[in-house]
Design a protein around this nucleic acid. Sequence first.
DNA 1: ACAAATTAGTTGGCAATACGAACCGATGTC
DNA 2: GACATCGGTTCGTATTGCCAACTAATTTGT
Lengths: 147, 147
Amino acid sequence: MTRTTTAEAGTELTFATALVRMSHVVQYVFADVSREHGVTPQQAQLLCMLTGGPVGMTELSRLLHLEKSSLTGLVDRVERRGLVTRVSHPRDRRACQISLTPEGTLLGEKVHGEICARLDVLGEAMPEADRRRIATALTGVVARYAV
Amino acid sequence: MTRTTTAEAGTELTFATALVRMSHVVQYVFADVSREHGVTPQQAQLLCMLTGGPVGMTELSRLLHLEKSSLTGLVDRVERRGLVTRVSHPRDRRACQISLTPEGTLLGEKVHGEICARLDVLGEAMPEADRRRIATALTGVVARYAV
DNA sequence: ACAAATTAGTTGGCAATACGAACCGATGTC
DNA sequence: GACATCGGTTCGTATTGCCAACTAATTTGT
């Protein structure tokens, strides 16, 4: 039993509160892992987002919920570290695709793996079936948001 | 190969991935609500953290996972907006307690209520029992992190 | 075909966030 | 009373993120 943090922690949490707390934990894990690998959480997130293949700036800004101008800076910094490159689009001379360098690919995979591993550890206490149920339910919640 | 990217949301997610996605949703909700009330997410979080009564800087930095130096600036900005005040500790002349002003209390409650409301809406699709089960399970996960 | 509207991405200016190191005063402790 | 410790602040720096304005390329309308 954990009656850890501030006051009465063993208490049952509201649905919303549980989500918020959970979100914090995820953020902390993300921050920890990123830092250990010498990048910021945002940069790590960008790398993870590119593991499926090159993506254009506009699409990326949609995926990351960022203004395009914010994204330009983020990509600049990550490119400066040699983790991604801007590849000019063959058919549209305005556009560019952000692509992982070998180094970026490696780092992205490492970070992604590490984050998943640590989150999975947190779920290890509960039986596989419960974990599955949570995943399913949360998937539904997420889908409901992404209207 | 990831078949995740753009559209098809019906896919089943990993436990870890579901947590990460969920975390993003929470962040977006937090950002939206905060912005609508004219504060940043960090400032809103600070207000929420104080609803239980005044808290000292060191304790706050622990609760928010922030360096004390970062916290000084955050409190400065929120104090400048008249939402909190630094109350000097009666028995320790070094310390100060951060306390909500009436205005800050009001805003904190509003933001907190709004955020919970929107998150609850996302859970409305599933039956009450499921929601409860998720809350319980996540509470466990969170507790497991807060070693 | 060519002007007008749209799209892709960048630039510049600004406020906020966050860290680390160095620092001051007050509060212990020996 | 000297010394370590604790509570906060200050300073310098990098990053994040928004908005408005901009350039260049593409598409649309006629």
